[in-house]
Amino acid sequence: MATQLFYLLIFPGFLFLSAFGLFAEYADRKIYARMQNRIGPPWFQPLADFIKLLGKETIIPESADRRIFLLMPVFALTAAVTSFLYIPMWDTHALVSFNGDAIVVLYLLTIPTVTFFLGGWSSNSMYSTIGAVRSITQLFAYEVPLFMGILAPSLLAGTWSLSEISAFYNAHSWYWLVNLPGLAIALIAVQGKLEKVPFDIPEAETEIVGGTFTEYSGRLLALLRMALDVEMVVVASLLAAVFLPFGLGYAPITGFIIYLIKVFFIIFLMALVRTVLARLRIEQMVNFCWKYLAPAGLLQLVVCLFVKGVMLQ
């Protein structure tokens, strides 16, 4: 019981994830800034922002649906933290694992987007409503390519469990190279999940102010931002576990360092994508996802089936 609680609350649960999330936000912002030839924030900036937001007054709009408005940030954070428990870090074993947890993780990662939608919708402001509608429209566009991109490796491995996927690729080195196109697809699709350029349409600052988060303030906004940070770490770990399954099975310290390098590599790639692209319009985004990204995901599936059916026999 005590170890369970330790896992949930301290490592690799809530406390570790929060700290890691804040640090990942710093890394993301710093990389973004340096690519733009700026200096960027100091290392404690995300933490300082978080503490500052905690100390601010939380304003709930009169016309908002109070209960949903209050609950959604907590739900978002909970879902993001929970999904981390199924992802193997430096070992081929996650904390909890069962056949089918890959699907569970993907669905748990969808929950934050849904909570953003509900929170934005229930705050009953014009900007939030439009942001909410945009975020749910976007969900339908990026989710399919993302699923196809991530599930292709599991098809090749022949299992729906993340731990077994990494065990498979660890055993069959070099097969992960087949999945590299899937990594590119997933990298682009997660920009939509994390609401970053080019898919930061739901919170496009110059168009609809704060989008979904316009009416959120104080502690609730802090929780929402923390949820996004944690989601970024979880997504980066997921991509690292599925697409870069090498260097596993070392001693915990070395393994952990390798894991960190992989995660920050993914964060670097995500920052690069958002540095070099302009924000798309929602209809261009949906078009792009269905016209190019989804077929590419399909192709990746076909390639994986081919490799599994022909070469692995």
Binding site: I31, A33, R34, M35, Q36, N37, R38, I39, G40, L272, T275, V276
Partner: peptide
């Protein structure tokens, strides 16, 4: 802009 931003990443910030 990829090559340009990667170059900037290695350079000293202009700030």
């Amino acid at each position: 802009m990829v090559s340009e931003v990667l170059k900037s990443f290695m350079k000293k910030p202009a700030t």
